[in-house]
Write a protein that binds this DNA or RNA. Sequence first.
DNA 1: CTAACATCTGAATACCTGTTCATATGAATA
DNA 2: TATTCATATGAACAGGTATTCAGATGTTAG
Lengths: 124, 124
Amino acid sequence: MGAPQEPDGDDGQHIRVEIPAEESVLQVADVFSLLGDPARVRILTALLNERMRVRDLAATVGSSESAVSHALRLLRAHHVVRVHRVGREAHYELHDAHVRALLQLALDHVTHANPIHVLGESDH
Amino acid sequence: MGAPQEPDGDDGQHIRVEIPAEESVLQVADVFSLLGDPARVRILTALLNERMRVRDLAATVGSSESAVSHALRLLRAHHVVRVHRVGREAHYELHDAHVRALLQLALDHVTHANPIHVLGESDH
DNA sequence: CTAACATCTGAATACCTGTTCATATGAATA
DNA sequence: TATTCATATGAACAGGTATTCAGATGTTAG
């Protein structure tokens, strides 16, 4: 044991942080972006438990059916939800385990009010 | 056309999904929204390991110092990062365990290439 | 067939957001 | 003090986005 040996000659404080590949960064930001809208959070939260029809989703989350349909279209394009058509109805289900995990984790954090920090220092 | 007014009881179909409180929904969407930008993802990823100066952050993530400063200001306002000033330098560190967990989970999912689905936009 | 129904869609609108540019602040240095 | 350095900031502009409205599909019932 001794001084930390740097493989390529790092003397002191240099900047070596591995930013993931561009594609990974974009994918991560993309998923988070989908979850960054209250309306979609409500929709996906509703879909956490059971599959639902557009109509019922709209009633549950309190948005218009058109707005919900647009949101579902976006989520569908990103393979986050999946649709099963039954006659003239459309049953949607959450179909992305990663999104499910992220959403559940975030909801857990918020609702359980984990006291990691509540009030921060003032700045602006 | 008078729609049958239902007090709140479920008669036929039971659409009983518990959407979290409005405040929780907004908080969740807010956090995800912060993570929904590639530039901020890069910055926070860099900060996952070590605290860094604005200058080095900019060089690492490949954005201008001004853009990074603006991003850090936003993250600071949301108590995601914390600044420690040393002379004329500003050392930033990730200061939100929830954000850290979410980011690490998302990066893990993406980089480990869990074959739930890949990429592809074919929905119209 | 026609009518009611469930969902989807495109266009328009209003809002939000991230970057750049120029400049300001404040601290170290000469 | 004057200058250089590190960071912060505001205004402005460009691009993105979520909602609404009106109408289009496609489906079932009468």
